[in-house]
Amino acid sequence: MAEFSDESQKNIAGRIAVQISPSYYVVVGNKSLEMLTDALTEACRSGFHVLSKGGTAVDAVEKTISYLEDLNYFNCGFGSLLNNDEEIECDAMIMDGTTLNTGAVMAADCLKNPVQLARKIMEKTIHTAIAGAGVEKVAKTLDHPTFTNDELKHPETAAFKLKYEELPDFLKKHLGVWDSVSAVAMDKHGHFACASSTGGLPGRLKGRLSEACTVGCGGYANEYGAATAGGYGEAVRKMTLARQVVFNMESGQDAQNSVKNAVEKMKERLPKSGFGSAIAIDRYGNISIHSTTSIIWSTIAGEEELCGARIKPKRNQQHA
């Protein structure tokens, strides 16, 4: 958990936070925890640089997530994990808390930076989400680059293959580690935004949608604050977890209590599958993170930069 509430730093250059569950660290295993933490910190710095130059919260979260989508370290964008048909399908969303405008791409099989097309959908169409085969057509209409599925694959992560029939048993050992990357930001004007991106569960059925592309589940922002959530997508969707965090802030809770209460409520309500994490910034500039699963996070508020990790063992390695 991280929390900032220093009045002297509020709204000077804004604040930003980013999180991911380290799926590649747990399963693929040839990326060190230090390497992943450094990459996440650099992504956060890239978003904060946007804020420090007067950019908007929307600009900052897009930049942060795009940085991570360009790497093959994380399960989003380029090098995402494969579905049951050995294809990449990515989900992403972005939301402007000032206008409540949002854009999303769902089951996109042709994008290196799905969060960037999600923003174009938000700003250049009257729609909020485009799915499946429609993504490529809209991308070309909006002059957004597209790629073949093979061009999106990275040899290292494409070598990890899982079939849908194997997924239930696999999740029992690794529940909560197949996460989205997500970011929340507050700019110097006190405006909020959030964004999220994921390659989805390995071995999932073609067309399965994650929490990352669903407003209110993987992310939500309004005038009270911004929140993103991740973990086991089906559980996060059932609880509309990000919206619950922001609702808690609307009800008078600070970021710390809003995040903790929402995440623990999901675990209590869905004891077999409700494991996940959430990050939030409230309207007073407080940043908070709470997780019941593995997580790596980075936050920047004014001149204060923090990062951390919490790695839970595989379930079959736990003794209690």
Rank of each mutant, 00 (worst) to 15 (best):
K153L: 08
P155W: 11
E156C: 00
A158N: 11
F160D: 10
K161Y: 13
K163R: 15
E166S: 13
D169F: 13
D169K: 15
K172D: 14
K173V: 07
K173R: 15
H174V: 06
H174M: 04
W178F: 13
D179P: 01
S180G: 05
A183R: 01
A185I: 12
M186L: 14
M186C: 13
K188A: 15
C194E: 10
A195Y: 10
S196M: 02
S197C: 05
S197N: 02
T198W: 05
G199N: 05
G200Q: 08
R208Q: 15
L209W: 05
S210Y: 08
C213L: 03
G216W: 04
C217N: 14
A221H: 01
N222V: 13
N222E: 11
A229K: 02
A229D: 00
T240Q: 13
R243F: 11
Q244S: 06
V246W: 00
V246P: 06
S251E: 08
S258K: 00
V259W: 01
V259L: 07
V259Y: 04
K260C: 03
N261A: 09
A262M: 01
A262Y: 08
K265N: 05
M266S: 05
R269F: 11
F275G: 00
S277Y: 08
S277D: 08
S277E: 09
Y284M: 05
H290G: 04
S291K: 09
T293N: 06
S294Y: 07
I295W: 12
